[in-house]
Design a protein around this nucleic acid. Structure first.
Lengths: 350, 350
DNA sequence: TTCCTCGTTGAAAGCGCTTACAAATCTGTT
DNA sequence: AACAGATTTGTAAGCGCTTTCAACGAGGAA
């Protein structure tokens, strides 16, 4: 092959559909046809085109195609960040489904972006529709403005008339896990997490309250903390100092619960004897700690997949009904709630 | 505003630069100029254009711009998948840096893709360059072929003449952690992981061997297992059955190490008394288990950022030298190696 | 007043691809 | 041999944007 000399790998100007056509001795239309897999091409031309493309290392320019066909074949996704398994799982579910649908995914992480609305608008520029996490801190007006020009689905965000939403079930599983704790005879149970921080936590707190109501107990106010490890550690300290009193903690996520457990380890307050601790998400660590963390598993991957699906439906124009899609969750009982630990090593499920 | 009726949010055909120009009473050239922030526009035009764009909810079509300027302003990234913190961190580092450089990132997950080379080629179609993880199982010829047409950087992959590589330091930290274990008096230490699975593990094993050589001991053969939890559990079972004998395990990653520790918990073999266990990566769980896991922290985020940087340099044509970029790592000593645990709760670092 | 300069604008030519549409070629019939 | 129909091919018109280049207009200097 008579490539250039000198530098080992200079990136050549790049073959175009024209150079391929020329080399194959056909028209660009034919090249396009074989590359798109159209039926209407003779075996002979197909072969020649494929060879020419190969020889020239032809890489089509998606932009040109997008312009011609007038869509991007790409889904946008906005996540706050990627620490912890939640967002990763979501992203995996989203990417796999998108790929199945033949869509690329262009990803944007919101945290730390100076001008978020601007970043989102830029993203919107290169996708057919975009999904974003409710917790990404995108201003409402940006969301609705975008929703006006292309499909937008909000994941675990506030329901709104302007955009689609998907979320996992919260209220009834929160009620379920709270009832489970109450059934262990706990009476001073605290909800740890800030209901004002978003619909997810708000709904979980609602379930917490409902469980109390059903048991004829009055639910305590939520302890409004953020969802990071540090907040859990601080909370454990408040417990140890006696600032807070509780015989059970229903934490809004696992990181919080785990941080509390670790801080309490070796202190006067034993888990679960003195204080039961339950969480939400079923992260990997939940089954590694001693005692195993009782928690609610969310099908986060499924959530991501549904978001991509919904986006695709909207883009291709299927007249799907607008309204929140709810994905079911389920309880994972381990030992931190007071249940006896399993006989052998700590394994989550088959 | 006189939008359509009927459906609450039908997505209109979409404003173009023409409609904006018309509404603003200027030419499309002027619209383009103000939208690109060119200096040569009067304040009056700027204002009118901005208003018109706003009113029409104008969202430019990136594809058209890309076609005109002949680059995508996007970096591609191929990862095997996203479980565990390693890939997520990498992705975060990559995304943040890319964003700083004004580039979008389009992400592809390799695992489960039926026709990987095809998927990668499709990705190449819409980015200016792409980074991929060495462990993504992309066939070598695909990589080099791609490397021939646009910049490619391999992350933690085999060094090659055709593409750039970035990786974290392995050999000498492996030697360091192994020496640490040997200094605890262990003499039957096993390396758990498959050196043939890629350059990372291969180099770690090399460090393991070097440490032994320096101590005048002959290093045991590597125990070639994959890096998942299950493999760790199975390995622990072999230890318990007596199939394998060891007083220390240098595991190729934390997941492996953690799985071993959990399986051994409550058995006759105590960690670290009977068998020390150390890992690699410093995942979150490493500081939650009892005893805390001694491990090597890789600056994974930095790795991602460097990949994006390198890509950018190549794309914009800076004549950077080709060759592997190496990011340093460092040891995190906790208790699983036999060191005394810290006095209070288990915290990694300030 | 005239000429020149400078800042601002618009016309128009592409960027590389898809896709009607029409032309050309190839079947098989009659 | 001539023709209808089916296949295969090429021509050319966009897709929406950037950018060159020339034209325009407003001052300022002469």
């Amino acid at each position: 092959m008579a490539t250039s000399s000198g530098h080992p790998t200079r990136h050549p100007a790049g073959a175009t559909i024209y150079s391929v056509a020329e080399r194959a001795g056909v028209s660009i239309a034919s090249v396009s046809r074989v590359l798109q897999g159209s039926q209407a091409v003779s075996e002979k031309t197909r072969k020649r085109v494929l060879e020419a493309a190969e020889e020239l290392r032809y890489v089509p320019l998606a932009a040109a195609r997008s312009l011609a066909v007038r869509h991007h074949e790409a889904h946008g996704l906005v996540l706050p960040e990627l620490s912890g398994p939640y967002y990763s799982e979501l992203l995996m579910g989203f990417e796999y489904r998108a790929a199945e649908l033949g869509q690329s995914v262009v990803l944007m992480l919101a945290e730390g972006k100076a001008d978020l609305p601007r970043a989102v608008r830029k993203l919107a520029t290169r996708v057919d529709g975009l999904a974003m996490l409710g917790s990404s801190a995108i201003p409402d007006e940006t969301v609705t403005a975008l929703g006006g020009s292309k499909p937008v689905v909000l994941i675990a965000g506030d329901e709104s008339a302007d955009v689609d939403t998907v979320r996992s079930e919260n209220t009834s599983s929160a009620r379920e896990i709270t009832e489970h704790v109450l059934r262990h005879g706990r009476r001073r149970v605290l909800f740890v997490g800030d209901p004002a921080s978003g619909p997810d936590i708000r709904d979980r707190y609602a379930g917490f309250v409902a469980a109390h109501a059903a048991a004829g107990i009055v639910a305590a106010e939520a302890v409004p903390v953020a969802l990071r490890e540090d907040d859990g550690t601080a909370l454990a300290d408040r417990l140890l100092r006696g600032d807070l009193e509780a015989d059970a903690l229903v934490c809004a996520n696992d990181e919080l619960a785990l941080a509390v457990m670790v801080r309490l380890r070796g202190s006067v307050l034993r888990v679960p004897e003195d204080v039961a601790v339950v969480g939400w998400d079923d992260v990997m660590t939940a089954r590694y700690v001693e005692p195993g963390l009782t928690t609610v598993r969310q099908p986060v991957r499924e959530l991501g997949a549904r978001a991509s699906d919904l986006l695709h439906e909207r883009i291709t124009g299927s007249a799907a009904p607008r309204g929140a899609q709810i994905i079911p969750t389920h309880l994972v009982i381990r030992a931190s709630c007071g249940c006896p630990p399993p006989p052998v090593a700590v394994r989550a499920q088959p």
